[in-house]
């Protein structure tokens, strides 16, 4: 059955190829359904212009103004950006905190996700059950509910301290001390590696078992197989996860807002929190827009860097090594 669907799909793909190539020969290509096409995508098109494109232009404009929402924006040129770069210590503080968070939580999360995915990628009785349990914390992900659990667990009277006292370690309020508060948020991010893990699992299923068999015949150890087969063949998936997680980590908001409120002494003052505070706490909408553009540039630069580096570490197998 699957075979038949596959070949039918291939047939239509070939058919399409022929059809398309026939069209390209004609100069002045005619479209089959221009009107219907635009009619069908019109909701998205309208939404894009109304809620993305136009707001982006506005936001760019606001970033050069002083704007309190109550009065019309007033043009002040580059003042906002000048202030951000030259005077704003909170900007640098929040940027630093966010970079720490991103550079610690993303690799830790992906590494955990990858290792657990490898362990789960086996045929074993009850695997489904284990997978569900391990994925479970990620399900309740970014909710306020989890934030509540976390702030109690790692507080002074939380059960974590009680557990630590059994082994003779004196606890403290992990959330209340400036040197560990960010760590608790990183730990929380790590705990929720489920989404990345599921994507890794799907990637691992694409790798042919024959490769591992051949490698063990040649006497390669498990660790060696992991480094020389799993990692290279999975590298496109690693790249995908890395980009996705990095972008979302830069925008981390809910947990910092609910668990630590940015404190103590700004040690968890995430960039998104600062932006929110400026925009909706103090109604400095122009300044907040400028902050948003700086964030976009930073995320863009980091993403570009990841893609650029991927040339050196992402391996695209020509035929995917997929088992037939």
């Amino acid at each position: 059955m699957g075979e038949r669907v596959n070949s039918a799909y291939k047939l239509t793909a070939d058919h399409r190829k022929v059809r398309d190539s026939g069209k390209k020969i004609k100069s002045g290509r005619r479209w089959e359904s221009p009107l219907a096409g635009y009619l069908f995508i019109s909701p998205w098109l309208l939404g894009f212009f109304l809620f993305t494109f136009w707001p982006m232009i506005q936001s760019a404009y606001f970033s050069f103004t002083e704007y309190s929402l109550l009065e019309a924006p007033q043009w002040i040129g580059l003042d906002n950006f000048n202030k951000i770069i030259n005077e704003d210590r909170l900007f640098y503080k929040s940027l630093g905190v966010t970079f720490w968070f991103v550079f610690a939580s993303v690799p830790l999360k992906l590494l955990t996700a990858l290792l657990v995915a490898v362990v789960l990628n086996r045929k074993l009785r009850g695997m489904h059950f284990y997978r569900t349990l391990i994925y479970f914390p990620s399900l309740v992900g970014t909710s306020v509910a989890i934030a509540i659990l976390w702030s109690n667990m790692l507080g002074t009277d939380g059960f974590v301290n009680k557990l630590l006292s059994y082994v003779g370690i004196e606890g403290k309020s992990w959330i209340g001390s400036p040197d560990t508060a960010l760590g608790t948020l990183i730990l929380l991010a790590m705990w929720q590696f489920g989404a990345s893990m599921v994507i890794f699992l799907a990637g691992l299923k694409q790798i042919s078992g024959e490769l591992y068999e051949a490698a063990s015949v040649d006497g390669a150890s498990k660790a060696r197989q992991f480094v020389s087969i799993t990692i290279p063949l999975l590298s496109p998936v690693i790249l995908f996860n890395l980009v996705l997680q990095t972008i979302s980590a830069f925008q981390m908001f809910t947990q910092a807002f609910v668990i630590t409120k940015g404190g103590p002494i700004n040690s968890t003052y995430m960039y998104a929190l600062y932006l929110y505070e400026k925009a909706f706490g103090r109604l400095e909408m122009g300044y907040a827009s400028a902050l948003a553009w700086v964030l976009l540039l930073i995320i863009g630069a980091v993403t570009a860097l990841i893609f650029f580096s991927s040339r050196y570490w992402v391996f695209y197998a020509t035929d995917g090594g997929k088992s037939k």
């Binding site: 479209w31 089959e32 096409g37 136009w54 929402l69 993403t303």
Partner: peptide, 29 residues
């Protein structure tokens, strides 16, 4: 459906997947 600029618009769809929502937050509000 086959219409002009289809792949261009679709590329935009994919780009907006990655767009941080902070950038439209203030004007949308």
């Amino acid at each position: 459906l086959d219409f002009p600029l289809r792949s261009f618009w679709f590329a935009i769809v994919l780009m907006t997947v990655m767009l941080p929502n902070q950038i439209t937050l203030v004007p949308q509000y």
